[in-house]
Design a protein around this nucleic acid. Structure first.
Length: 296
DNA sequence: AAGCAGGGCAACCGCGAGAAT
DNA sequence: TATTCTCGCGGTTGCCCTGCT
């Protein structure tokens, strides 16, 4: 049995809203509210529009304190970060950006930010998405920015704080305590069965802490919806051979693991930026894990 | 100046979740 | 418990504007 249409499509106006319609809708909602029923609202307000159309118009354009255009760098970072963490859940991302609508952010991402990311992620071949290793030059700030963008968003973290591995670590350590399990060594890293849990293992050499941090991050954020779930798992590993006590392979190695069912774009961006000759790229299409790994 | 292509954005569509009946 | 209805969401479409040839 088919679903009943929400309105009589033959008798409703479609397309761009006129200033008169805007005024009617705004006036009605300001005086009467939505009444909790968008379907009935257009009739009451004297509009020949579908209730869904009215809702969309109000939420995306007419409601107070809406901002359009001119996204700031800070907002860009927030969007990058949240997208990396939760995927294309625009309403959630919008909730973190005062005055922005999900539609605005979605459009902004699709038309500008994604391209900006491509530009960032596709520099000359000597650029890699990686945390500095002892055998490679220090990454540029843009690398940290990109990596920062993969970290879960935390509004209390300043931009500057995110710009260095140390800052990132501070961020993780200080801000995500409720979600973090801190492990003393890699070998004891466990993959939590719980969703929405962030697991981090951090190795340090007591003599060379400042330059040779081993970092392992595992982010597992799942949407609440079982059917439209966006699963994002960002795992970044950096195993420096000098501190790599638990593996046979002594190569300097950093890896990024992205698991995701709704972030194909991110996958492509990262994989395309990390396929230079000295990297090996592994896709693990195991359906139970759905992850791919990038090793340097 | 005209035609075309691409980008940006507002609006629409269809689906799933959850409330109401 | 099953069915219907509304809301809210993400994906997609299509119009309009701008820049290029």
């Amino acid at each position: 049995m088919g679903r009943a249409p929400c309105c009589d499509k033959e008798n409703v106006k479609r397309g761009p809203w006129s200033p008169e319609e805007d005024a009617k809708l705004k006036d009605y909602i300001e005086k009467q509210g939505t009444g909790g029923n968008w379907i009935a609202l257009p009739h009451k307000a004297g509009l020949r529009r579908c209730g869904k159309s009215c809702r969309l118009r109000w939420l995306n354009y007419l409601r107070p304190n809406i901002r359009h255009g001119d996204f700031t760098e800070e907002e860009d970072k927030i969007i990058y970060s949240l997208y990396a963490s939760i995927g294309s859940r625009w309403s959630v991302i919008a909730a973190h950006l005062q005055g922005r609508t999900d539609n605005d952010i979605k459009n902004y991402w699709n038309t500008k930010l994604k391209k900006k990311l491509i530009a960032t992620m596709a520099p000359p071949s000597h650029h890699h998405l990686a945390i500095a290793t002892s055998s490679s030059p220090s990454p540029s700030p843009s690398h940290y920015n990109m990596i920062n963008s993969l970290l879960p968003y935390n509004p209390s973290v300043s931009t500057n704080q995110l710009l260095t591995p140390q800052g990132m670590m501070m961020t993780m350590m200080g801000q995500q305590q409720q979600q973090l399990l801190y492990q003393e060594d890699m070998g004891s890293l466990v993959n939590s069965a719980n969703s929405n849990k962030f697991i981090m293992s951090h190795q340090e050499d007591s003599q060379e802490q400042s330059t040779n941090n081993g970092i392992m991050l595992l982010s597992d954020v799942r949407s609440g919806s079982s059917t439209t779930s966006t699963v994002t798992r960002v795992k970044m590993e950096h195993l420096d051979h000098q501190h790599h006590h638990h593996e046979e392979d002594e190569r300097s190695m950093s890896s990024v693991v992205m698991e995701d069912y709704g972030m194909e774009e991110i996958k492509q961006l990262i994989s395309s930026s990390c396929t230079s000759s000295n990297n090996s790229l592994w896709f693990d299409e195991n359906k139970t894990e759905d992850k791919f790994m990038l090793y340097y």
